[in-house]
Amino acid sequence: MAARIIIADDHPLFRSALGHAVCKVWPEAEVVEAGSAGAARAALADGAEALLLDLHMEDSHGLTVLMDLRQDYPALPIVIVSASEEPRVYAAASQLGAAAFIPKSASLDDMRGALAAVREGDSWFPETDVDADDDLARMASLTPAQRRILGQMRAGLLNKQIAWELEISEATVKAHITAIFRKLGVVSRTQAVLLATKLDVDQPAADAAAS
């Protein structure tokens, strides 16, 4: 059976370029294109050999999407393909379980090399001397529900507003927030929100303009 490779990026031309690189490494691959994280998740229902994932799409902005997919598909090789070229983002993606990180500025040869490494079960990341971050490890311990609530806290919503948005009781929201504080080692919403900013990935201006 041919390998099934999912490419999730909201730029059709870049998806096409990635598709060419994929076909050089997996010549018989079935390439499935998705324009959003939600579409990629739907495509994963039919299985995949690997997922190439942009971090900036209409429904995903940062490393939270990587954590969610990593938790739901622990054996799936996820290759981050991003316009971000921050060493801290490379290190964070590696720490959170990505198989590779390909900057969008990478040459076609480097893209092929990264994909070939993933196909062989190896990892591929640009060189960085950034150390592992204990805060990221703590955030990775949050459940998907806790991450959703933390996201609502970042948006400035009160407990009753979060309860309404997520269709749960306010008591459940409070219980989740208590668990979030404990797992993150913080004592206030402000501290939790500040830690969560480490999951953000700055989007280069040129890439943002193209979105």
Rank of each mutant, 00 (worst) to 15 (best):
R15K: 05
L108Y: 07
L18A: 11
Y73P: 00
D110K: 08
S60E: 06
R88V: 12
A196H: 05
E30P: 06
G19S: 14
A155Y: 08
V118R: 04
A21S: 12
A205T: 09
L52H: 00
A29E: 03
P103K: 04
L66W: 10
D110I: 11
K183C: 10
T128R: 12
G19H: 14
L44W: 13
P126F: 08
P27N: 15
V31L: 05
A99P: 06
A29F: 14
A83C: 10
I162F: 05
C23N: 12
K104D: 05
A171R: 14
A48K: 10
T190D: 15
K198F: 06
E49G: 06
V81A: 09
K104W: 00
E86P: 01
A75G: 03
L18K: 13
V118G: 03
A100F: 13
A137E: 09
I168T: 05
V201M: 11
L66M: 11
L96P: 01
A37R: 10
I177Y: 03
G121N: 06
S141C: 11
R41Q: 13
D72T: 03
A92P: 01
L51I: 07
I78E: 01
L142Y: 11
A37K: 08
L108V: 02
E85T: 07
A163P: 05
M139H: 09
V79I: 15
A208D: 09
L195G: 05
A100P: 09
T197A: 08
G121F: 04
S36V: 04
A114F: 01
A93R: 03
P204E: 10
S84D: 11
E30N: 13
A40V: 14
A75V: 11
T197R: 15
W124K: 12
E86S: 11
S188H: 07
L108C: 02
D122G: 09
A75Q: 08
E49F: 07
L53S: 09
L184V: 13
T197H: 10
I7V: 10
K160V: 08
A98M: 04
A140H: 02
A2F: 04
D54M: 01
D59C: 12
A132H: 05
A29K: 11
A2S: 11
R88Y: 14
E170V: 06
R189W: 02
A145P: 06
F101N: 07
T143C: 06
G38R: 08
E86V: 00
R70H: 03
A45W: 00
A210Y: 14
R4S: 03
T128E: 12
A93K: 00
M57L: 12
E30H: 07
R4K: 08
A155C: 10
Q191G: 13
R148G: 10
R154H: 07
P12Y: 05
R147Q: 14
P126L: 10
L184N: 10
N159C: 02
A42P: 07
A209N: 05
A163H: 07
T178P: 01
I162Q: 06
L52N: 02
A40C: 08
K24E: 14
A140L: 04
A29L: 05
S82W: 01
A205W: 15
E28C: 05
D110F: 15
L53M: 14
E30I: 10
A175F: 12
E120C: 04
D54R: 00
G185R: 01
S107T: 13
E49D: 12
W124P: 06
R182E: 12
T178Y: 01
L44M: 14
E127Q: 06
L66P: 15
D122Q: 15
Q152Y: 10
D133P: 02
A50V: 04
V89P: 01
T172E: 13
